[in-house]
Design a protein around this nucleic acid. Structure first.
Length: 192
DNA sequence: CCAATTTGACCACC
DNA sequence: GGTGGTCAAATTGG
């Protein structure tokens, strides 16, 4: 009787998990590409298109879930979310809001860890997003919208999201989520 | 009245 | 210096 079943090879559970997630991500991306091309063959509102849009939305959600699962699987030296110190000090006059001579302090805007998905509409994930900016992008037809987690002040949620309408297909939205505490490993999978 | 959005200005990076 | 990302006052909607 085999007392235990050993995994083939000397891969660690984390490695197995990573390979699995990579395969899933690859499949999800291929599916997204295929489904996106299918969308162009069907009129908006048609049953096939509605179903395809739902599938695309589900894929996006699944990718986000994979991101979270992957993080928990390799949680070792990840620094616990630092006590979020909101540096934005509201200096609001009691009578008028017209002021602000003080210079604003900006943090580094570099977001090395990100996850890009393409959907037909806004992603409905676990986050509640709040729009904080919109920018016209050079050489781009449509502006880019910037969202951040609504719970940033009270829960220290540092996730941000950029959403831009696709130039080739205005019905598609390129959504890039950035979260320095959550998407590090996901990027490694996507960039291989 | 409060919360979310809009929008122009500010700042960092290339 | 140009472009992109963020801030925050002003505005709008529930």
């Amino acid at each position: 009787m085999e007392a235990s079943v050993k995994r083939q090879g000397s891969t660690s559970p984390v490695s197995d998990w990573k390979v699995t997630v990579e395969a899933l991500i690859r499949g999800a991306r291929d599916s997204t590409t295929l489904l996106s091309s299918l969308l162009q063959d069907h009129a908006p509102g048609s049953p096939t298109r509605v179903l395809t849009e739902e599938i695309l939305s589900s894929i996006s959600k699944a990718l986000l879930v994979l991101d979270d699962c992957k993080k928990s699987a390799v949680q070792r030296t990840s620094n616990p979310s630092p006590p979020f110190s909101d540096h934005t000090q509201k200096v609001v006059s009691s009578s008028k809001r017209k002021i602000i001579p003080a210079r604003r302090v900006y943090k580094s805007r570099s977001q090395p860890y990100s996850c890009t998905t393409i959907t037909t509409k806004t992603i409905n994930d676990a986050y509640s997003w709040r729009k904080y900016g919109q920018k016209r992008i050079y050489n781009a037809t449509f502006p880019r919208c910037y969202y951040r987690c609504t719970h940033k002040p009270d829960r220290g949620c540092q996730a941000t999201r950029q959403v831009q309408q696709s130039e080739e297909d205005p019905a598609m939205f390129v959504s890039t989520r950035a979260d320095p505490t959550r998407t590090k490993l996901l990027l490694q999978s996507l960039t291989t």
